[in-house]
Amino acid sequence: MNDSRLRRPSAVRTLRVGEMKVSYVPDGAMLLKPAGGPPATADRHWSGYSAYLNDTRRLVANTGGLLVEHGTRALLIDAGFGPRAVPENSDHPDRGAVHGGSLPGNLALLGRSPTDIETVAFTHLHPDHIGWACVDPPLFTRATFVIPKAEWDHCDPEVAALEARTRLVLAGEEVFPGVHAVALPGHTAGHTGFVIASHGVRLLAFGDAMLSSLQIRHPEWSAISDADPDRSELHRRRLIAELLRPDTLGFGIHFADVVFGRVRPDGREAAWHPL
Rank of each mutant, 00 (worst) to 15 (best):
M1A: 13
M1I: 11
D3W: 13
S4T: 12
R5V: 12
R7W: 04
R8L: 07
P9F: 06
P9E: 14
L15S: 01
R16I: 11
V17Q: 02
M20E: 12
V22T: 06
S23P: 00
V25F: 12
M30I: 10
L31D: 01
L32Y: 10
L32E: 09
K33N: 03
G36D: 04
G37T: 13
P38I: 10
P39W: 07
P39L: 08
P39C: 06
T41C: 10
T41L: 09
T41A: 14
T41Y: 11
T41R: 15
S47F: 13
S47T: 14
Y49R: 14
Y52F: 10
R58N: 12
L59G: 01
V60P: 02
V60G: 03
N62G: 00
G65V: 02
L66S: 06
L67V: 12
L67I: 12
G71L: 06
G71Q: 08
T72M: 13
T72H: 07
A74S: 15
L75I: 02
L75F: 08
I77S: 02
A79T: 08
G80R: 02
P83K: 06
P83V: 09
R84Y: 09
A85P: 00
V86N: 01
N89F: 13
D91H: 12
G96P: 06
G96Y: 00
G101T: 05
G101P: 10
P104R: 08
P104W: 14
N106T: 03
A108Y: 11
A108W: 15
L109E: 15
L110G: 07
G111C: 13
R112T: 13
S113P: 15
I117H: 04
T119F: 03
V120W: 13
V120H: 07
V120D: 01
H129M: 13
I130L: 06
I130E: 03
I130T: 13
G131Q: 03
W132L: 05
A133Q: 01
V135N: 08
P138D: 11
A143D: 03
T144R: 15
F145N: 04
P148Y: 04
K149M: 02
K149I: 07
W152G: 03
H154N: 08
H154E: 13
D156H: 11
P157Q: 05
E158F: 09
E158P: 04
V159K: 01
V159R: 04
A160G: 11
R165Y: 09
T166Y: 04
T166V: 13
L170D: 07
A171Y: 00
E173P: 01
P177V: 00
P177W: 02
H180L: 11
A181R: 04
H187E: 04
T188M: 05
F194I: 05
V195W: 11
V195Y: 10
G200M: 12
F206Y: 15
D208G: 00
M210G: 02
M210F: 06
L211Y: 14
S213W: 07
R217F: 05
E220Q: 15
W221A: 06
S222Q: 04
S222K: 05
S222L: 03
I224G: 00
D226V: 05
A227T: 09
A227H: 10
D228I: 02
L234W: 12
R237W: 09
R238W: 10
L239D: 09
L239K: 03
I240R: 00
D247E: 10
L249N: 08
G250V: 02
G250H: 07
G252I: 00
I253F: 04
I253N: 05
V259P: 01
R262F: 09
P265W: 05
R268L: 08
R268S: 11
A271Y: 09
P274V: 03
